[in-house]
Design a protein around this nucleic acid. Structure first.
Lengths: 133, 133
DNA sequence: CAGAATCCTACCTGATACTG
DNA sequence: CAGTATCAGGTAGGATTCTG
């Protein structure tokens, strides 16, 4: 009993190789939630995704999409038009992430501003703690 | 209209400096969701957290906790016992993250195994795509 | 358009030593 | 106990260039 077991979920957070832990690691990085959020709105093309996610590089976008594809969360469809277009979409499994991810985005929208103001308030405390010279 | 606006949430994902976007970035990294998840179960001490989150270094744990503190999501309370103990707890603002984070953990538990099996299935596809000599 | 390839840096890890 | 400090090494990620 080295790990606290939570009423509802029995995840061994203490073990990085635990499948649940690996699943969590997969969806908690800088770009994955954003990509999934956009895809949860419907299929989307590469350049569309890139334009809508500020700051992402094509390397990271490609890498993130490949990962989602490999894990069975998204599909990649190439339309042989000219110029070619590639469309990404969530799989049924990927769709199950819609709710959790949207909750996260919902929270971000609600508390983004509150957090900023809290920081301002906390600044004086910081100054006191740091005690620069 | 360069960014898709989503029915419920108006977040400019295309702008990294958007407060909502910054809030999201804050909670989507390797360690923050895990720390918040554990704290959402009640106040917890440093060593307890460290033991329960497999693979985290003391540097990253401290860094993550400081960030949560600075953003007003968690509190740090020092009990001047001997040896001293430090307890971390969510603030009311931090508590608002309970549901979203638990949803994420819930998903991880449910689909951790499914994803593995999907990967196995997808392997043959990968082989075909890579076409190694 | 949708990437692949390359280079390069910042951050993270891991180990260890030290402190109040 | 709850950190801080340091240093070696690896890897994730950014910037740039090129391509079918």
């Amino acid at each position: 009993m080295e790990t606290r077991t939570h009423a509802a979920y029995e995840i061994k957070l203490s073990d990085r190789r635990c499948p649940s832990r690996r699943a969590l690691d997969l969806i908690t990085d800088r770009w994955t939630p954003l990509v999934i959020f956009l895809l949860s709105d419907g299929p989307c093309r590469y350049t569309q995704l890139k334009r809508q996610i500020g700051g992402i590089t094509q390397k990271m976008l490609t890498q993130t999409l490949r990962k989602l594809e490999d894990e069975g969360l998204a599909t990649r469809t190439v339309y042989p038009t000219s110029p070619p277009s590639v469309e990404y979409a969530l799989t049924p499994l990927g769709e199950t992430l819609r709710e959790p991810i949207q909750q996260l985005l919902h929270w971000s929208r609600s508390y983004g501003l509150q957090m900023r103001s809290t920081r301002e308030v906390a600044k004086s405390d910081e100054e006191r703690r740091k005690d620069p010279e």
